[in-house]
Design a protein around this nucleic acid. Structure first.
Length: 909
RNA sequence: GGGCGGUUAGCUCAGCUGGUCAGAGCGCCUCGCUUACACCGAGGAAGUCGGAGGUUCGAGUCCUCCACCGCCCACCA
C-alpha cells in the first residue's frame, strides 16, 4: 500500500461551514490580544499598532468597512506572524449627527421627535438605541475575520473617551487654542446645528441673479431720491433684510462719487453707507454689492473692515427673524418670493437672469446651508496645522500614496479655525461653564468646576454650555484616548505612537488631519508614522454605492455567497493604494476559485501521504539526500516567492502580494510542482525515502504558502493548516504561526527544471497545433544539452506523463535527431532543448504544418535578434549603458542567434 | 479659478525608483487522456500602453503641450 485512505475534506471548499468555527477557535485561544493567552509575540520586538476608523455605532457593515478591515487585518496578521506584539483595537464612534439623523427618522415613524422628547429623554432613547445597534457592527467585523482585540473594545462615548475629551479641551483652552466667539458659521436648518467647512458640499445649481435698485438718499433731507439709485446684484434677495452697506471697488470710477453717500434698504427702511472695498469685483453684476455681514463670508469680512452693523435676519429654523420686519416668521424661500414681489411693486427689481452657481448643501441632510452669525467654540488651528505640516515634511508621518501629501499640504496651509460647537444633544457636552458675570470656566473635572475661575461664584450659579462637540473632536483623540490617555498607562507606553493609520482618502481631512494636529499638540508626538489611504469601493459601473441608487452590495450577503476569504481577496487583489475599486462578481469569483484551488491542492497533498509516514507525524524538513530536481526547484521557487512577498508587504503593495501568491500557488505549485510530484509519489520503484522527501517538500511548500496567504485569506488557510502536519515548534493555530523565512535559491536547478517545463509546454503546443488527440501518446526524441542532464534523467517519467510523450527517447545530440526527423514529425525547440515528435497517421501532412510553424517562429526570432543586434552595434549603448545591461543583451543575442540558426537548419532540412 | 488623478488586450485592472514589462482575471476560440480541483486541465487569438512633441544609448515608465473622464480645494454677490 502506497497511499493512505482518501482525505475526509469535502471536494469543494465550503466557507460557510468552516469560517464561523475557526473564528470561535481564534477567540477561544485568545490570540488576538498582544498579551493574550495564545499570543506567541516576542515582547522584545517593537509593537505594531494599527488604527482602524471606528465605524458608526448605528451603522451596519458596508463594503468600505469591509475593504478597510481587510487591509488592516492583512497588515496586523502579517505583523503578528513576524512575532511582533500587535494591537488592532476595535471601536465604535457615537457619530453624533449621523446617529441623531438615524434616530430622528425612527422617532418620526413613532410620532415623536427630538423636540417632543426633550434633551434627557432623547438621550436615554439614544442610549437604548445604540445598545441595540452596537452588536450588529461588531458581529459583522467578526464575519470578515478581523483579528481585533475584543477585550479592548472602546466607544467614543465611554467614560475614558469622555475624560480624554475634557482634558484635551481644557489643554487647548489653557494653551489659547480654544476660544469662544461670535462668528459666521455654516448653519444647517435641517439639522438645526452648525457644521464645519468640510460638511458643506458645494453643489452646482441653476439659480437666478436679480438686480435690485437701492435708492440714494438726498444729502440735504436724508430722504430717498426716487430717481437716483444704485443697482446691486443678488442671488439671495431675502438677505436684503440684513444689508448694512453697499460696497464698490475703490478704483471703480463709475461709483467714485457715490462712496460716502447713503442708500435706503427697502422694507427694513435702513439707511446704510456706500463704501469702497477691494473685495468687490467691478466686472461682476453691476459692480456694486449689497453687504450682508451676518449672512455671507465675504460680506462678513467687509463688515469687519468697515465696522458695519451685523444684522442677523434668520432664525434656527431658517425663518426670518424679528429683524426682518414684516417678513418675520416667514420661511426663507417664502420671504424671498415676498421680497421679490415687493421690489417689483416698488419698481426696484430691474433685472433677472438665470445664473449657474454653487450652493452649499449639508453633507448629512442635503439642506441648503445658511451662513449665520453665531456664538460658538472654535479651535485655533494655525499652530496645530503648522505642526502637522512639519510632521509630513520631515517624514515623521508618511502618507501613502504620496500624492495625497500635496492635498494635505494645500488643505493645511489654507485651513480655517475649526468650529467645534454643535447644537446637538448626542455627544460630548462642551466642558465650559458660564457665570452670571459673563466669565467662562473650562474644567476637565467630570463633576464640573467648583466655582467660577474668575470671580469665584459657586458652582450652583454656573451654567454649562449646552452645545456638544463636533463628533470628529473625540475621533481626533482616538489613537491615544483608546490607550488610556491622559494617563500614562501600560498600553499607552507600549503602543503609542501607533504604527499605521488606515482609512479611505475621503476622510483624510475630517479625521486624519485632526488626529495628527491634536495628537502632536496633546501628546507631543505624531500619532502614527504611516497613513495608508485606501480607495473607494464602487459598483461594477464605477458609481459610488448609495442607498438611493440602490446599488449597494451587502458584504454579509457576499460573505454568504462567496466566503469571507473571497471577499477579502477581491477587495485587495489588483488594487493600488488610493485607487478606487470596482467590485464585480468576477473579482469575487476569482477569490472564491482561488480558495477552492488551494483547498483542493491541500486535499491532494494530504491524500498523497506515503504510507510510511504516520498520519500524525510531526513535520520535518525533507531529507536533502533524497531531493530530486523537482523538489529542489520547488524549494527554490518558494524561496523566491517568500522574498517577493516580503518586498510587497514592506512596500504596502498588497495588490501585488495577492498577484504573486496567486501565481505561485496556482501556476507553479498546482500546475507544476504537484504534477511533477505525482509521478515520483506513484513510482513504486522509487525508494520510500525518496517518496517521503517528495511529500515533505510538498508539505513544506504548502505550509509556506499557507503562511504567506494567511493575512489575506485567513479562514481557508487556517482550515487547511489544521490538517497539515506541524513542526514541534509550531503553535496549533496558523494565526500565530511564524511568517516564513526566505530560504536559499538554486539558480541552476531553476534553470534546468524551468527549461524542461518549457519543453513540456512546447510539446503540448505542437500537439495542439498538430490537432493530435489528447489521449494519444507520441514518441518524442530529445537532444538534451549537458546543463539539463541531471534534471532530465530524474524528470523523464514526469515529462512522459505531462507531455504524453511515450516513449521519450534521449539522443546524444541535436545531430542525432536527424535520423528520426521526417515527413511525419514535428520539431520542438525550447530553452536550448530540441525535440522531435513523431506524428503517426498524419504522414506527409506534417510537412506543411511543420514548415508553417517553424517559419513563424523563425520570423519572430529574427525580429528579436535584429533588435538585439541593433542595440549591440550602437556605440552609445555599449559605452553608456551599465555593464549588467550590456552583458544581458549579449547573452540574449547569443541565445537568439542560436535559436535562429536551428530554425533555419530545420527549415532547410 | 487653482490643484490632483485616470486614459495599457472586448471588459475590469496590475505594471515600485526608465533597460526580457507588454502582464493578470474575466470573456472569446480549440480540445479535454490524466481519481486534488469543471469554483477544473491543456493550447490559442487579442494591445503601435489616449494624441503630439521632447529628454535619453534606451520610455506605458521622465518632461512639455493637447483631448476626454473623474476627484479635491476655492468668499464672484
Amino acid at each position: 500500500m502506497t497511499q493512505t485512505e482518501a482525505p475526509t475534506l469535502p471536494k469543494a471548499y465550503q466557507p460557510s461551514e468552516v469560517e464561523g468555527s475557526i473564528y470561535e477557535r481564534w477567540l477561544a485561544a485568545d490570540v488576538f490580544a498582544p498579551d493574550g493567552a495564545g499570543s506567541t509575540a516576542d515582547p522584545e520586538l517593537p509593537a505594531f499598532t494599527i488604527i482602524q476608523p471606528p465605524p458608526n455605532v448605528t451603522g451596519s457593515l458596508h463594503l468600505g468597512h469591509a475593504q478597510r478591515s481587510s487591509v488592516e487585518d492583512l497588515m496586523v496578521r502579517h505583523a503578528r506572524m513576524t512575532g511582533r506584539p500587535t494591537l488592532f483595537l476595535p471601536g465604535l464612534d457615537h457619530a453624533s449627527i449621523a446617529a441623531q439623523f438615524v434616530l430622528d427618522r425612527i422617532l418620526a415613524t413613532e410620532g415623536e421627535s427630538r423636540q417632543s422628547l426633550g434633551r434627557e429623554r432623547y438621550l436615554d432613547r439614544m442610549r437604548r438605541f445604540v445598545d441595540e445597534t452596537r452588536p450588529i457592527m461588531l458581529g459583522q467585523q467578526r464575519r470578515l475575520g478581523a483579528s481585533l482585540d475584543w477585550g479592548r473594545l472602546r466607544f467614543t462615548m465611554d467614560e475614558v473617551s469622555a475624560r480624554a475629551v475634557r482634558v484635551a479641551f481644557k489643554r487647548l483652552y489653557d494653551d489659547g487654542l480654544a476660544y469662544r466667539t461670535e462668528a459666521l458659521i455654516h448653519w444647517c436648518p435641517g439639522c438645526r446645528t452648525s457644521v464645519s467647512d468640510l460638511e458643506v458640499i458645494p453643489t452646482e445649481e441653476a439659480g437666478t441673479l436679480w438686480t435690485v435698485r437701492y435708492h440714494l438718499l438726498d444729502e440735504a433731507t436724508g430722504e430717498p431720491l426716487p430717481d437716483e439709485a444704485l443697482s446691486v446684484a443678488t442671488t439671495r434677495p431675502e438677505t436684503i433684510l440684513g444689508d448694512t452697506a453697499v460696497a464698490v471697488h475703490p478704483d471703480d470710477a463709475r461709483f467714485a462719487a457715490l462712496v460716502g453717500r447713503r442708500v435706503r434698504i427697502p422694507f427694513v427702511e435702513r439707511d446704510v453707507p456706500v463704501i469702497a472695498d477691494e473685495a468687490v469685483d467691478p466686472a461682476f453684476g453691476t459692480g456694486a454689492v449689497k453687504v450682508t455681514p451676518a449672512h455671507d463670508a465675504t460680506d462678513y469680512e467687509i463688515g469687519r473692515r468697515h465696522d458695519l452693523p451685523f444684522v442677523n435676519v434668520m432664525n434656527d429654523d431658517a425663518t426670518i427673524s424679528e429683524h426682518g420686519n414684516g417678513f418675520a416668521g416667514l420661511d426663507r424661500y417664502d420671504a424671498r418670493r415676498a421680497i421679490l414681489d415687493g421690489l417689483r411693486e416698488r419698481g426696484d427689481l430691474v433685472g433677472e437672469r438665470p445664473h449657474e452657481m454653487l450652493i452649499g448643501r449639508c453633507q448629512r441632510s442635503d439642506d441648503v446651508i445658511e451662513p449665520r452669525l453665531k456664538t460658538q467654540w472654535f479651535v485655533r488651528v494655525g499652530p496645530l496645522a503648522e505642526a502637522a505640516l512639519a510632521a509630513t515634511r520631515s517624514g515623521r508621518t508618511r502618507i501613502l500614496p504620496e500624492r495625497f501629501e500635496k492635498e494635505w499640504e494645500h488643505w493645511l496651509t489654507n485651513i480655517h479655525d475649526w468650529n467645534v460647537s454643535r447644537q446637538l444633544w448626542w455627544g460630548h457636552r462642551i466642558p465650559a461653564w458660564y457665570c452670571p458675570d459673563g466669565h467662562t470656566t473650562v474644567s476637565d473635572d467630570a463633576a464640573g468646576p467648583a466655582a467660577c475661575a474668575a470671580c469665584g461664584r459657586p458652582a450652583e450659579e454656573l451654567v454649562q454650555e449646552a452645545d456638544i462637540f463636533d463628533t470628529w473632536f473625540s475621533s481626533g483623540l482616538w489613537p491615544f484616548s483608546t490607550l488610556g490617555w491622559p494617563d500614562e498607562t501600560a498600553d499607552y507606553r507600549r503602543f503609542y505612537p501607533t504604527s499605521v493609520m488606515e482609512t479611505g482618502y475621503d476622510i483624510l481631512f475630517f479625521w486624519v488631519a485632526r488626529m495628527v494636529m491634536l495628537g502632536i499638540h496633546l501628546t507631543g508626538r505624531e500619532p502614527f508614522h504611516t497613513v495608508y489611504l485606501s480607495g473607494l469601493v464602487r459598483d461594477p459601473l464605477g458609481q459610488k454605492m448609495s442607498k438611493t441608487k440602490g446599488n449597494v452590495v451587502d458584504p454579509l450577503q457576499t460573505i454568504d455567497d462567496y466566503g469571507a476569504d473571497a471577499l477579502r481577496f477581491a477587495l485587495i487583489d489588483g488594487t493600488a493604494p488610493g485607487n478606487d475599486l470596482r467590485l464585480s462578481p468576477a473579482r469575487l469569483e476569482k477569490g472564491r476559485n482561488f480558495a477552492n484551488k488551494l483547498w483542493n491542492a491541500a486535499r491532494f497533498v494530504l491524500g498523497a501521504r506515503p504510507a510510511s509516514i504516520a498520519s500524525d507525524a510531526v513535520r520535518r524538513a525533507p531529507d536533502p539526500a533524497h531531493l530530486g530536481p523537482a523538489e529542489r526547484w520547488l524549494r527554490s521557487r518558494v524561496a523566491a516567492t517568500i522574498a517577493a512577498a516580503d518586498r510587497a508587504v514592506e512596500g504596502y503593495a498588497f495588490g501585488e502580494l495577492t498577484r504573486l501568491l496567486y501565481d505561485a500557488i496556482w501556476s507553479e505549485y498546482c500546475d507544476w510542482a504537484i504534477e511533477l510530484a505525482k509521478v515520483r509519489l506513484a513510482d513504486a520503484s522509487a525508494a520510500a525515502a525518496e517518496r517521503e522527501a517528495t511529500w515533505w517538500t510538498l508539505v513544506e511548500a504548502l505550509d509556506a504558502y499557507l503562511r504567506l496567504l494567511h493575512p489575506v485569506m485567513p479562514f481557508v488557510t487556517e482550515a487547511i493548516w489544521e490538517s497539515l502536519p506541524h513542526a514541534e515548534a509550531d503553535p496549533s493555530l496558523l494565526v500565530v504561526a511564524r511568517w516564513p523565512v526566505v530560504g536559499g535559491r538554486d539558480p541552476d536547478v531553476e534553470g534546468a527544471v524551468g527549461g524542461l517545463l518549457e519543453l513540456v509546454r512546447g510539446i503540448r503546443n505542437a500537439r495542439s497545433e498538430g490537432r493530435i488527440e489528447a489521449r494519444v501518446a507520441l514518441r518524442v526524441d530529445v537532444a538534451v544539452p549537458p546543463a539539463f542532464d541531471v534534471a532530465f534523467e530524474a524528470l523523464a517519467p514526469a515529462i512522459e506523463r505531462l507531455a504524453r510523450a511515450r516513449p521519450l527517447v534521449r539522443v546524444p545530440d541535436a545531430g542525432g535527431l536527424d535520423d528520426v526527423r521526417g515527413p511525419g514529425t514535428l520539431t520542438v525547440l525550447a530553452a536550448g532543448i530540441e525535440a522531435v515528435m513523431a506524428v503517426p497517421g498524419v504522414g506527409g501532412s506534417t510537412g506543411s504544418l511543420e514548415r508553417e510553424r517553424l517559419a513563424r517562429e523563425l520570423t519572430e526570432a529574427e525580429r528579436l535578434l535584429e533588435a538585439a543586434r541593433a542595440r549591440l552595434t550602437n556605440e552609445q549603448f555599449l559605452s553608456r549603458a551599465p555593464e549588467r545591461v550590456v552583458a544581458g543583451a549579449r547573452a540574449r543575442e547569443a541565445e537568439l542567434a542560436e535559436q535562429v540558426e536551428r530554425l533555419r537548419a530545420r527549415l532547410a532540412g
